[in-house]
Design a protein around this nucleic acid. Structure first.
Lengths: 188, 188
DNA sequence: GACCCTACCTAACGAACGTTAGGTAGGCAA
DNA sequence: TTGCCTACCTAACGTTCGTTAGGTAGGGTC
């Protein structure tokens, strides 16, 4: 086959799958659908992955990778910032993972819950690690009285934006400020 | 057939479907699965509904009915209360719809997004009406500066609780206070 | 030139899907 | 007693599902 255009079919499979899973959920996506959008036949997917579950597991893992990468950048940028700015930086990073680095994180937060049990079990440890970072951060900031509950509702506020936020029209910095204000208070 | 035990098969179909949709998403639920849990055969579902889509549409509609009923009760109970208490009462009512009146509302908020387009289109007007109630309330309270954005993140914080809140162990009043505090401030 | 590996293909498998056709058993009305 | 209605049933339809078997065409290696 030609060298042009055939770059990283595996990556394109994941891209396409993440977008479809975000829209229809795991069970609502057929491999023939994925293959068609990639430009190959359904059977050819098995050259890259052993099963459908393996594809969606890779999508969910990449969703966490994107989040952790965004976290690392935020952590590096905000080490010496005041606590409120640290929180805002990490909220902005999470939103960036949801909207600015492909559909992986968005697919993860919307579809993980209804994925097959085997897929979930394989990914849960990675999820826990990311959540632990947030728990640790919120404990550090020492502002909210119930860090456990507040972390969960914070995740809810951030993640639910995938259902309504429009990248073309909305402003992620503005959304960051709104959410930060809820969990910290208005600007000092 | 016997009179006993056959009470309202239609209602049992909806109950079972709502619970399954909450767990697996619309596409992840088969009619044979629903029928088996109800105790009839798959073909018999067509005596009560014309199609699978009609069943899930009825589930989503009932999800809204439960929310609106909870809203009405809250509105009646809090007419003369101070603004913060009004907000808290409605938050508590929404959480009650999510956890204390069957799986309908929980199924709605988690699975509606990935439902077939025809089903969504048929239910959207009802959704809009419920959301308008909240928009109106938040405008009335006149506390938050960006009611539109804040309503959406409030929904996110409340609705995401279906992913982690445990009715057996958790306290809905406590959760109500945590969320209310985020959107209003600590107790006066 | 022979060989093999990569990256796809066609064809088909059995299972499961939503749905339909055509029953039947029991209760109620005339 | 006949006839109809309700609420289910069995059996099967065509389609789609995830998956497998067995190719083949092109490039790299010896």
């Amino acid at each position: 086959m030609a060298v042009v255009d055939t770059v990283d079919v595996r990556g394109r499979i994941l891209d396409v799958t993440a977008a479809l899973v975000l829209e229809h959920g795991v069970a609502g996506v057929a491999q023939r659908q994925i293959a068609e959008q990639v430009g190959i036949k359904a059977a050819s997917l098995y050259h890259h992955f052993a099963s459908k579950n393996e594809i969606v597991e890779a999508v969910f893992r990449q969703g966490i990778d994107v989040m952790e990468h965004a976290w690392d950048e935020a952590a590096a940028a905000a080490t010496r910032a005041d606590p409120r700015t640290r929180l805002a930086t990490h909220i902005r990073a999470h939103l960036s993972a949801l909207f600015e680095n492909g559909p992986y994180t968005a697919a993860h937060v919307t579809a993980f819950r209804t994925a097959p049990a085997e897929v979930r079990a394989a990914v849960v440890p990675m999820r826990d690690a990311y959540e632990a970072r947030w728990t640790h951060l919120l404990g550090d900031l020492d502002r909210v009285d119930q860090p456990g509950l507040n972390r969960l509702t914070l995740f809810g506020a951030m993640n639910s934006s995938v259902e309504w936020f429009d990248t073309e029209r909305g402003n992620l910095d503005e959304l960051t400020e709104v959410i930060t204000a809820q969990f910290w208070g208005r600007t000092t």
